[in-house]
Design a protein around this nucleic acid. Structure first.
Lengths: 206, 206
DNA sequence: TCAGTTCTGGAGCTGACACTCCAATCGCGC
DNA sequence: GCGCGATTGGAGTGTCAGCTCCAGAACTGA
């Protein structure tokens, strides 16, 4: 049961648009200031809606947060297209790396990863959010895994390598790199983390 | 100028003990529920002190948070002794890895890294906290770097390897592994991340 | 057109939070 | 001991958070 299905019994076109506007505004604010640092009042103003509208579309703040998680997960995955899912060569992996680094540079290294930040903030205080975020990471991981599996199947990766484990490690390196990049306001950690990961993968090719 | 020096003009032995009790209680609570999720009231109760005592020792919540950061940084580094600073062989690195994984297992994979969690929560909202945390990560990174530099100097690592960059990548992998482990409630991500890092280092030995 | 539902505006409630204030007590240094 | 600053207790304050409520406007489907 997704967060989506928990809210919104029936929406007109206009209602859908309002709901989307709320989610978009909340996503932006929560990315910039964190979930706890974003009030429903802030969201109201940013989305240009009244108090009751937020509670018309979402049962409470938790429901809104879950909608934001769903939205941000999709945004993050979309931003990595068409790379994600086709990471089955070293060149594709390098291009993906460059995209991720560029994205952080464009953002002045602020905010880090929307999913990672929410995961860190909510995992211990909101079980529903934790599982939503775990699923989000799962989709991301799958996007990496597919490519590495293809390389493995094709024989480009050594037989004794576990591509699934390698994909998980790569996602972890990426997340850690994003965190350190956000704290240091410098892409060096992200670059070092991804380069080390990709060098490692390269060293496992046949 | 450290957070320490900003508070506490002159403390008696008793005052010192009270202050420490407040910081310890706040650290525990903020680790479990996050900074925003911890109220000064919670800290009061847990430390067994009155309202005025908190504001006697800390000018405001931010000052308390900075003291917590200093405390947690020290705790995290201490918990890795005597490994940290002596990570100059593959065996030492593997033993360190086992320690980190065991620690998460003991905690049922809850809470993740105190420094990483605070960094994620505070980087965008509290500049002083961000720099404190960046320094904390700097000390941690240095502990890893020293070992890899020793291996490099000794000729155990290939000449063309940059041990500083490798140390940064290793810390990133560790942080990402801790984050995913916290979200999934499973040590597999941490193990995969650290094993990949150490395998990579091993592949760079002469 | 009209009934029924969805959508919107905004006043207002309740609890909680960070923080203040002042008086009382403790204990260190002389 | 004695004085004075360090320490403590706890009531109180202002603000703001999340959320409720209700009346009216807008829209949909028949």
């Amino acid at each position: 049961m997704s967060a989506e299905e928990l809210t919104a019994p029936r929406l007109t076109r206009k209602g859908r648009a309002t709901r989307d506007r709320i989610v978009a505004a909340a996503s932006e604010l929560m990315f910039l200031r964190g979930v706890a640092g974003t009030t429903t009042d802030d969201v109201q103003r940013a989305a240009g809606v009244s108090t009751s509208q937020i509670y018309h579309y979402f049962s409470d703040k938790t429901a809104l947060v879950r909608a934001v998680i769903a939205h941000q997960t999709q945004e993050v995955l979309d931003a990595q297209q068409p790379h994600l899912g086709r990471l089955d060569t070293l060149e594709a992996l390098r291009a993906w790396r460059d995209l991720l680094v560029d994205l952080q540079r464009q953002r002045q290294c602020e905010g880090g990863c929307p999913i990672g930040s929410m995961a860190s903030e909510l995992s211990e205080t909101c079980p529903e959010a934790r599982t939503d975020l775990a699923e989000g990471f799962g989709r991301w991981e799958a996007g990496i895994r597919d490519g590495l599996r293809a390389m493995h199947d094709r024989g480009d990766l050594r037989r004794d390598v576990d591509p699934d484990r390698l994909a998980l490690a790569t996602l972890a390196a990426l997340q850690g790199g994003l965190l350190l990049t956000k704290v240091r306001r410098d892409t060096a950690p992200l670059e070092a983390a991804l380069d080390a990961s990709l060098d490692h993968i390269a060293s496992l090719t046949t």
